[in-house]
């Protein structure tokens, strides 16, 4: 079994890829650093361990002008591959433009101690799509959790409780847009909040403009979010952004029987319709 750094070295030496995006040892004990390796000398830095939380699919749209002649290699866990599927589905990248170094993942951790929340409902220890596979699957003794259990729990609250909860949470938002920047599916060249004419969402921070921003973010990702949890991880004010995303995923699953990131040929649910869609709320 070859290690990631050996594979990366080989790929770069044989000139098959233009760069390898991967993880290296971080500057803090419980973090790994993302690196973009362009020469085989640097490839030694590449590692994979249980601290590799980041979803590297983000670099495909943010850092490269991709070509089919010389793809970019990316180290990917099962959950990250879903984002690539989404990007292919939405015609942002082509399959041939990425070389996926799939890793068998046994769960990752954000702080070195606890398993990342997304891992509890993950069934993709082995990626669904890859060009080369690394790592070994361990016996997984994680108790599987229904991904929507916290959404269902939250829905039991009254209208006012929910409103007050979100007001308290969204009040903390400082609009650093880390949630947008780390999201592999937020690839718009110009985000709606950066547009000035017309100005849909005011750039200042207040409950009302923060609410508009978070409604926008959640709704734009409805049926597209693959649940990688990067937005929530990047938020230093711990706003439960995944809760909104999961709710959207649940609505889309319940109504249109669709799950994001599983089929690169499927049509995005909000860019599609059926004659028999429900309309019991329409007069």
């Amino acid at each position: 079994m070859n290690s990631i750094s050996e594979i990366a070295k080989k790929l770069l030496d044989e000139n098959r890829v233009s760069a390898v995006v991967g993880y290296s040892i971080g500057s803090l004990p419980n973090k790994t650093k993302t690196v973009i390796v362009k020469s085989s000398q640097q490839a030694e830095k590449l590692i994979f361990n249980n601290l590799c939380v980041n979803n590297l699919a983000i670099y495909l749209t943010k850092s490269f002008r991709l070509t089919t002649q010389k793809p970019v290699a990316v180290v990917m866990k099962g959950c990250d591959v879903k984002s690539v599927t989404g990007l292919i589905q939405e015609k942002q990248i082509e399959r041939e433009q990425v070389f996926i170094i799939g890793v068998k993942c046994n769960g990752v951790s954000e702080d070195g101690k606890n398993l990342s929340p997304k891992c509890y409902s993950c069934k993709l220890q082995t990626p669904k799509m890859y060009d080369i596979l690394v790592g070994e699957e361990e016996e997984k003794n994680i108790e599987f959790k229904n991904p929507f259990s916290d959404v269902e729990e939250f829905e039991k609250k009254s209208l006012d409780e929910r409103w007050n909860f979100w007001m308290n949470e969204l009040e903390k938002c400082v609009k650093c847009y880390a949630c947008r920047q780390v999201c592999p599916l937020c690839y718009c060249e110009k985000c709606i909040v950066d547009k000035t004419v017309p100005r849909w969402i005011e750039p200042h921070t207040s409950k009302s403009s923060n609410l508009s921003w978070h409604i926008t973010r959640a709704f734009h990702l409805a049926g597209r979010c693959t649940g990688c949890g990067e937005c929530e991880r990047a938020c230093h004010h711990n706003i439960p952004l995944s809760l909104l995303n999961k709710k959207m995923a649940k609505v889309v699953y319940d109504n249109f029987n669709y799950q994001a990131g599983l089929d690169d040929k499927a049509k995005s649910p909000l860019a599609d319709f059926k004659f028999q869609d429900k309309e019991d709320f329409i007069r």
Partner: peptide, 15 residues
């Protein structure tokens, strides 16, 4: 119609 199915649920979720 599809968009409103989803958007309504989002509004409700937010309170």
């Amino acid at each position: 119609r599809r968009r409103f199915i989803v958007f309504r649920e989002l509004l409700q979720f937010i309170g």
